[in-house]
Design a protein around this nucleic acid. Structure first.
Lengths: 190, 190
DNA sequence: CCACGATACGGAGGGTCCCTCCGTTTAGCA
DNA sequence: TGCTAAACGGAGGGACCCTCCGTATCGTGG
């Protein structure tokens, strides 16, 4: 028998090209404004091929935004490692977090919406974010800078909510920063 | 000539029945889960009739959630009129605000998304909300309880973001309250 | 009371989605 | 080179929002 286990070369090629094109399109136009037909046509494959590689549009989206999610942990470490006051470091993390979430239009709301849902295609990304926030909380809490009842899920939701609004209304960084300052002060207080 | 200016009796009847049914359906199932066909069928009218009265789905939604929006000002007054500390009154207002926004599934995000957009069908509702928040800010600021750089738009976005997350993830009131406490403390601080 | 015209009704169908199904083509081992 | 498992491609199904237009109804002037 001729069991060919690894993916065929053309399949690998197509999968990568589709993911690249999708990343580009989603980033430019946002989730809703990109149709699966458009991705297939731009990538030069049939719609059937697209769906063979990515069973739903959300799965494609998940693959398209995969790369940058993986750098989130590094960003958390970097924000925390700096020398400044807890408030400054927390704000730096928040800003990095919002910058990540808003890098692809529509991602902030989609990911924040999926926060409690284990069945979502974004569940893995949510866990990454939760862990990063937990690390930030642990670090600042060990310095006694945080109020006691803050948890990672709550923080993800608060900052994710801000990110979603910033993304949707295309707010300037200043507007985002002033909203994040409110959240940071609220979390540090008490 | 026979110019019949006022609406015909059947038209008035249908308009009201459609709005009633739509309010009920939107409230039960949320914006996305209700189709225009479903509204028409449930109301017992043709799809053409529905669109004669409400030119888009968003216009229908706007009409469906009209009634409760108008009571928001009363809620603001009531929250402010109580005797408690500024923090308690602010929190009471936030909770009332979130309760309003989450009363119809999907409304929080849609309205908060429309905050800067004058062309949105929800523009009028946004103005109502902004004014209510402005009144709250003015009252508390006159007591010196607020940080200086808080504005109504920012507050609408912050609390609207929390409301959207609460609505989408169907969080318990406790979870909402703890997030709102963070925002309130952040706004009062400094 | 009736006839007639302005008004409103209803649903077929257009355009756009996401996604499925299946006949056709291709890769790659023996 | 022949053959089979794997991959491809696109027609089309079903759902959606919305438009268009022939048909039915309302309500007034005669």
């Amino acid at each position: 028998m001729k069991v060919v286990n690894p993916l065929r070369a053309d399949a690998v090629r197509n999968r990568e090209r589709i993911a690249d094109i999708a990343r580009q399109l989603f980033r430019e136009k946002g989730y809703d404004a990109v149709s699966m037909d458009e991705v297939a046509k731009t990538a030069g494959v049939g719609i059937g091929t697209l769906y063979r590689h990515f069973p739903t549009k959300e799965a494609l989206y998940d693959a398209a935004i995969q790369a940058w999610v993986e750098t989130v942990n590094a960003a958390a470490e970097k924000s925390l490692a700096s020398e400044g006051a807890p408030r400054d470091r927390l704000l730096a993390w928040f800003e990095a977090y919002v910058e990540f979430l808003t890098r692809h239009k529509g991602a902030a709301w989609r990911i924040t919406s999926a926060l409690g849902d284990d069945d979502s295609p974004f569940a893995a990304k949510c866990r990454t974010y939760l862990n990063a926030n937990q690390r930030v909380i642990d670090t600042l809490a060990s310095e006694g800078a945080l109020r006691a009842d803050v948890d990672a899920m709550q923080l993800c939701r608060l900052v994710g909510g801000v990110a979603a609004v910033v993304d949707n209304s295309e707010l300037a960084p200043d507007a985002a920063r002033s909203m994040l300052a409110v959240v940071a002060d609220g979390v540090l207080a008490g």
